[in-house]
């Protein structure tokens, strides 16, 4: 099978070759699902969101140009799909972190216990991190999305994207340290 670039495939979709979207779906479904899952933790909802992304890809294929970066373009759509979904719902459900990150029993090894506690605390801190901050960290963890591309996704400059990543990580650290003091 030809390994056409994402952009070449998307241009085929744009020209009416809709079945090519299947190849892009296979390349991106896991990354999109992972992004959504880390944002909302609801696997079934994430599957719907992934599908909505591809529905929008077809709907807005005319906006894709040869100059577009497919990765930024699709994550921009993903982000809109996510926020549109939660805009419709009144409030984002707070997830029970303790339940979600049930840790396996440690073998009473003190170090492991300590590490587990730290991880639990970190998960709690992450759950308290505002959605936009969590999102920027998750976006910057996606392979291929550097500050420049993140800027394209969230409509800001490269420098601004960098600052936001730094701030988000600092905020996470602050929340963690506050929780640790309690």
């Amino acid at each position: 099978m030809d390994l056409l670039s994402d952009s070449a495939l998307m241009l085929k979709v744009k020209s009416g070759d809709n079945h090519t979207l299947g190849l892009l779906y296979e390349r991106y479904k896991k990354r999109l699902f992972g992004f959504f899952f880390q944002m909302c933790k609801d696997a079934s909802l994430c599957e719907d969101l992934v599908q909505n992304v591809f529905i929008r890809v077809l709907k807005y294929k005319h906006t894709y140009t040869e100059e577009s970066n497919f990765l930024s373009w699709i994550f921009k759509i993903a982000r809109n799909v996510y926020y549109d979904h939660f805009k419709a719902a009144a409030k984002n459900k707070a997830s029970d972190v303790d339940e979600l990150y049930d840790l396996k029993s440690s073998d009473n090894v003190e170090k492991e216990m300590e590490q587990n506690e730290k991880m639990m605390l970190l998960k709690k801190a992450i759950s308290k991190l505002p959605d936009d901050k969590k999102e920027i960290i998750l976006l910057s963890k996606i392979k291929g999305l550097k500050h420049k591309e993140i800027g394209e996704v969230i409509n800001c400059s490269e420098g601004n994207a960098r600052t936001r990543v730094h701030r988000a990580l600092n905020d996470l650290k602050d929340i963690y340290l506050t929780l640790e003091k309690r």
């Binding site: 479904k29 880390q38 696997a43 991880m119 969590k134």
Partner: peptide, 20 residues
């Protein structure tokens, strides 16, 4: 902090493919 935000992600089900 950087690594901690990444967690285990389940595999999407076959239903997602069928839906797509």
């Amino acid at each position: 902090f950087w690594e901690g935000i990444e967690e285990e992600i389940p595999e999407p089900s076959a239903a997602m493919d069928i839906g797509f």
